[in-house]
Design a protein around this nucleic acid. Structure first.
Length: 106
DNA sequence: AAGGTGACCGGCC
DNA sequence: TGGCCGGCCACCT
C-alpha cells in the first residue's frame, strides 16, 4: 500500500455509492487517522484536481455542505447532490442520517 | 527548520 | 439552546 495519505482519502471517497453521502469524520476513521478529520478535508482540497473523487458527496457530520465554498460556483455542490437525487435545503442534506454511507476500513 | 493553516469533531461553559 | 475552545495530523511557506 502506498503511504500517501491523500491516496487513502481518495480511495474512500471513490467508494462512496451514487446518491449517498458521508462525513469527514467517517473517512478519517476509515483511514485510521480517526480524530484528525481535518486532514480529510485538507486532502479533499487537493482532490479538487482529480475528477475521480466526488468531493461533493462528502460533508461534515452535520450534513451541512461546508465545503461548497471551495467549489467553482456557490451552489455547484448542491446542484451535483440534487442531480444524484439527494435533497438539499439551505446547504444542508435532507435525511442525511438515511443517506449517510459509512466507508469500510481497509 | 519552525510556524501557521485547514472543506472537522467533540466537549465544555 | 447556542457559541467558544482545544485537539489532531499532514501540507505549505
Amino acid at each position: 500500500m502506498e503511504a500517501n495519505f491523500f491516496e487513502r482519502v481518495y480511495a474512500i471517497a471513490r467508494q462512496i455509492p451514487y446518491g449517498r453521502v458521508t462525513s469527514y469524520g467517517a473517512i478519517a476513521k476509515a483511514i485510521g487517522t480517526g480524530r484528525s478529520a481535518r486532514m480529510v478535508g485538507w486532502a479533499m482540497n487537493a482532490s479538487h484536481n482529480l475528477e475521480d473523487v466526488p468531493a461533493h458527496r462528502v460533508v461534515n457530520r452535520n450534513g451541512l455542505l461546508t465545503g461548497k465554498h471551495h467549489f467553482d460556483g456557490t451552489n455547484l455542490m448542491q446542484q451535483l447532490l440534487e442531480n444524484e437525487g439527494v435533497e438539499v435545503v439551505d446547504n444542508k442534506i435532507v435525511d442525511f442520517k438515511k443517506l449517510f454511507w459509512e466507508p469500510e476500513i481497509m
